[in-house]
């Protein structure tokens, strides 16, 4: 079977009942979606299936033949961050970063579907996503900001910073 992963057609050889999360991580080596619970409870594994957010840990890959799957890797790169990604950095919405892939994916789907900066609506849309670090406020603020703004200033504002911003992997 086949899926289109982040715009590229990929052959899948895992058995059809394999959860999409394991196919992504173990067969295709695309690891942004995280295994926080593998039981639908945390949201860290969320990816877009035909543009809609879905728990990859609960999705048997056999149901996806021909579908378009988008992971965090498909939403923006360190050189070309999306508005949601920029807002998450600017508003410190990613602390340990483990929930972040699911949060950014779900937030992107929310805004793509016409979601506004209404904070209650944002909370409702992301109500299934657990973050243990931030207390959620920064995440909601970031999404609200991304709803109204397309660019964020990510530069360091101290004159001679002694902190180097790392972009890209390690």
């Amino acid at each position: 079977m086949n899926i289109t992963l982040n715009g590229v057609s990929r052959q899948i050889s895992s058995p059809p009942l394999t959860p999409l999360l394991r196919v992504l991580r173990n067969e295709l080596n695309v690891v942004s979606a995280k295994a926080g619970c593998e039981a639908g409870g945390c949201g860290a594994c969320t990816v877009l299936v035909d543009g809609r957010p879905q728990r990859s840990c609960l999705t048997a890959v056999g149901s996806l033949n021909g579908a378009a799957v988008t992971t965090l890797e498909g939403l923006g790169t360190s050189e070309n961050l999306s508005a949601v990604q920029q807002a998450f950095v600017h508003h410190y919405a990613a602390q340990c970063g483990f929930c972040t892939p699911g949060m950014v994916v779900a937030a992107t789907a929310y805004l793509d579907a016409g979601g506004s900066d209404d904070k209650e609506a944002i909370q409702e849309a992301l109500g299934g996503h657990v973050c243990r670090c931030t207390g959620y406020l920064k995440i909601v603020n970031a999404i609200a900001a991304a709803a109204t703004q397309s660019e964020f200033d990510l530069t360091i504002t101290a004159e001679e910073p002694n902190v180097v911003v790392k972009t890209g992997g390690r």
């Binding site: 995280k34 360190s78 990604q85 990613a94 101290a158 910073p161 911003v165 390690r170």
Partner: peptide
């Protein structure tokens, strides 16, 4: 003390939002 009072992005922020941060399982 250039950092005190300044708005400093997290050093790992961009890695987190692009999925490039490498956790043990990754």
């Amino acid at each position: 003390m250039k950092a005190v009072g300044a708005r400093l992005p997290r050093y790992d922020g961009v890695g987190h939002v692009t999925g490039q941060t490498q956790f043990v399982d990754d």
